[in-house]
């Protein structure tokens, strides 16, 4: 049988999926043990013991200087920035994308600008944001907004325009005015697609968040990683990276489930 026609069963697919993870852990564990055997104070590849003690210190003990639980504080600060930034970006994307998608006049005036904006490398204007909005929360949120909104706007507009032309004609024959075309045809059908777009934009959003936190911040997951880098504290950095990854997976899956729950017609292939 040709390789392209061989499909793994459920159980074997699960095992196949786990193998790379197990291999990575195994390789890391071996390398770490080897280095630690040579030098118990090695910082580069900390073992499980060092990492758990670091997590314990960061997450479950009060910081000696500030009295805070640093990891939770960092998580809260970062998630808040991420949520505000992505929330604003998604709202902007929805509004501009709908108008661009439905109204030709609006599209003619705004689509070239949106395309041009989406080509600006957001990190290149980070200094401008710091200068304009200061080093506080606003500049970090703005970086996420500027980094993710233009592409989401283009995506939403594209999704609106992908709706069959027949629907647009049909709703007009039912007497819809332009406003009703937006609110009763385009908006409800584009919402589940917006959630998909947000899921895809979360990667870039994390990137911009951590970049902004690394450069100027007093708390946050990205800030912490870059702070402890000075002490080569891999025992903190690695758990933090794993934690961020876990958060990203959880957020992504929550959005996926929300989409399924709210829009049953969309996920059952009704589009």
């Amino acid at each position: 049988m040709r390789l392209i026609n061989r499909h793994p069963g459920r159980a074997s697919a699960l095992v196949l999926g786990l193998i790379p993870f197990l291999l990575a852990i195994l390789v890391y564990g071996m390398a770490s043990r080897e280095r630690l055997a040579e030098n118990p104070n090695d910082k580069l590849l900390p073992g499980l013991e060092q990492m758990t003690s670091a997590i314990n210190r960061m997450a479950f003990q009060e910081d000696r200087r500030s009295g805070d639980y640093l990891m939770w504080q960092d998580t809260k600060a970062s998630l808040q920035r991420l949520a505000i930034g992505v929330g604003i970006a998604a709202s902007l994307a929805l509004a501009v994308g709908l108008l661009n998608g439905v109204l030709p006049v609006f599209r003619a005036g705004l689509a070239p600008l949106v395309s041009a904006l989406s080509m600006i490398p957001p990190l290149a204007i980070l200094p401008i944001l710091f200068i304009v909005f200061g080093l506080g929360e606003l500049s970090k949120v703005m970086l996420i907004v500027i980094g993710t909104a233009p592409i989401m706007m283009r995506d939403v507009a594209q999704r609106v325009r992908e709706l069959p032309q027949e629907q647009l004609i049909k709703i007009q024959t039912l007497g819809a005015n332009s406003w009703q075309v937006v609110t009763r045809m385009a908006l409800p059908q584009v919402l589940p697609r917006l959630i998909d777009t947000v899921r895809l934009s979360l990667g870039p959003a994390w990137l911009f968040l951590i970049a902004a936190e690394a450069i100027a911040s007093e708390e946050g997951l990205g800030y912490r990683i870059f702070l402890v880098r000075r002490y080569l504290a891999m025992d903190v950095i690695l758990p933090y990276v794993l934690w961020i990854t876990l958060l990203a997976i959880v957020i992504d899956q929550l959005l996926r489930l929300t989409n399924r729950r709210l829009f049953p017609w969309y996920n059952a292939g009704g589009h």
């Binding site: 049909k170 709703i171 007009q172 007497g175 059908q189 589009h271």
Partner: peptide, 18 residues
Amino acid sequence: EPDRNRGIVFQRYSVFPH
């Protein structure tokens, strides 16, 4: 432009999936 006095049924995509 199309209006409520003239109805249409296409071969496909005439109904709203949502």
